[in-house]
Design a protein around this nucleic acid. Structure first.
Length: 430
RNA sequence: GGAGAGGUGGCCGAGAGGCUGAAGGCAACCGCCUGCUAAGCGGUUGAUGGGCUUAACACCUAUCCGAGGGUUCGAAUCCCUCCCUCUCCGCCA
């Protein structure tokens, strides 16, 4: 949600933002409602003021034991048009609210303008792509026997996955290790509900736009979360924090459920695009002055995980056309997949500025006094599992493929993770 | 699922048709005072919409006591519906 003052005083800026994000823009419609509503509010205020004055006099006369019937008639007449105006104000206000929910966030100044992903900018790259003296295989071949699509299809349908044996354990190990790393860097670990209400989905911006992309349980009015961002950001919905409580840094593991309607076709093979995947997510509430720096930090936090795992990656700054509805700025982390010879997105780190905070009414009280202000919210994957697993097995494969040895290698490496030494986490357990 | 209790400002907690945007306390902030700290004394401090204005402050005004309806000249207070929390019972991983 954008600031109403901005909508009023710089509608052209809003229209530009919509255009750059390929979103329809109904700012003119909004402006008309706004004007009509303000007129109604003004008239309503005058009538209520008059009625309040008369009521006060009724009260005074009655206390004095006098006859207030003439005043009562007058007060009744003064209030006659109030319900009509109240209804008008309410209707117009609801129209404005609905329109406001469709305005996307405004991209930051340093976001490249472009119509789609082709305008994205690669900021930096790390690591050596693996070289093989044999023909490397994609993960769906390498994981035969421990990645069972047929079984998943039988249980739930196509594009679900089922891991078994060492592959299942590999995923769990990675989840646990990533959470430990985030905890060691000072984040609070959260285990949230995996279903969320429409209200929560609206606050973080999934609704109204992405209704078709989510699994919905109409009987209970709930949605399966498409990302841990939803429950963890909503943890502070409606709250007013003290400035000294900022930043609030959290991490969580959640499964993520996405219908992926209309995305069948290429690039969906194997673990690349599935209806349920596992993800470790970082969420942060920040002071507005520090959100840009926080964004950099969070990108770096996710990169550091990939360096520990030894997976080549690149950081991509998304252009306006590829930027999500709610984001002001977003960096994707893409990892090199040696078997498919392509980059795979494993993280999106976004700064939403006050966009989600407005929708979810998340504020803080400045230490020096003064009005409450909206916090800035950020989140980023750290990291998404299926593609991470895919790249790990593809990049570490040998001539004879992969096997349980890969899990044991990784477990040994992570046990020695210097970032976890002395934290009482996995490393201490040895 | 059944029975009961309850949701009031940043927090605790009174109020049970008008004099209540809301006592009292805590916290925070400002000032005074005391070697420092603590204590003490005085003062200040809710949110949102609209007007005015520079999209500020101040000021004026309206609205807000879980949410939404209703009764009334007037509702935190009375009535209805819904949501949430707690306790007990049942069922269940």
């Amino acid at each position: 949600m954008l600031d109403r003052e901005l909508l009023r005083h710089d509608p052209a800026k809003v229209a530009r933002a919509c255009a750059s994000k390929n979103e329809p823009c109904r700012i003119d419609e909004w402006s008309a409602c706004d004007e009509a509503r303000r007129a109604a509010v003004h008239e309503l205020d005058e009538l209520r003021k008059r009625r309040n004055e008369l009521s006060q006099r009724v009260s005074a006369v009655k206390r004095g034991g006098g006859d207030a019937s003439a005043l009562l008639d007058e007060a009744r007449a003064a209030g006659e048009r109030i319900p009509e105006l109240e209804a008008r104000e309410k209707t117009l206000g609801e129209q404005m609210d609905a329109l406001e929910l469709t305005f996307p966030n405004i991209p930051d100044e340093d976001v490249p303008v472009g119509k789609d992903a082709s305008a994205n900018v690669v900021l930096r790259e790390w690591g050596e792509k693996p070289r093989f003296d044999f023909e490397p295989k994609p993960h769906w071949d390498l994981l035969e026997g421990v990645l069972d699509f047929e079984a998943a299809g039988r249980i739930a349908g196509s594009n679900f996955i089922l891991l078994r044996g060492w592959a299942a354990r590999l995923q769990r190990t990675l989840i646990s290790w990533m959470l430990d790393r985030h905890s060691a860097s000072g984040m609070e670990e959260i285990w949230p509900p995996f279903l969320a209400s429409a209200e929560s989905m609206t606050a973080t911006g999934q609704l109204p736009k992405l209704d078709d992309d989510m699994y919905h349980l109409p009987g209970d009015g709930l949605y399966l979360i498409p990302t841990g961002e939803v429950p963890v950001t909503n943890l502070y919905r409606g709250e007013t924090l003290d400035e000294k409580d900022l930043p609030v840094r959290m991490c969580c593991y959640t499964p993520c459920f996405r219908r992926e309607a209309g995305s069948y076709g290429r690039e969906t093979r194997g673990l690349n695009r599935v209806h349920q995947f596992e993800k470790v997510e970082m969420v942060r509430l920040e002071h507005p002055d520090r959100s840009a720096a926080a964004h950099e930090e969070m990108v770096e936090q996710s990169c550091s995980l990939l360096r520990t795992l030894g997976i080549p990656y690149r950081v991509v700054l998304l252009s306006t056309g590829d930027l999500s509805f709610s984001a002001a700025k977003c960096c994707d982390l893409e990892i090199w997949s040696g078997g498919q010879q392509r980059w795979l997105e494993v993280s999106s780190v976004s700064n939403f500025r006050d966009f989600q905070a407005r929708r979810g009414n998340m504020k803080f009280r400045p230490s020096g006094g003064g009005r409450t202000r909206f916090v800035h919210t950020l989140n980023g994957s750290g990291l998404a599992l299926p593609r991470l697993v895919a790249a790990l097995v593809e990049n570490r494969q040998r001539r004879d493929g992969v096997g349980e040895w890969l899990l044991h290698d990784l477990e040994s490496e992570l046990a020695c993770d210097p970032a976890l030494q002395g934290t009482g986490g996995r490393a201490a357990e040895g």
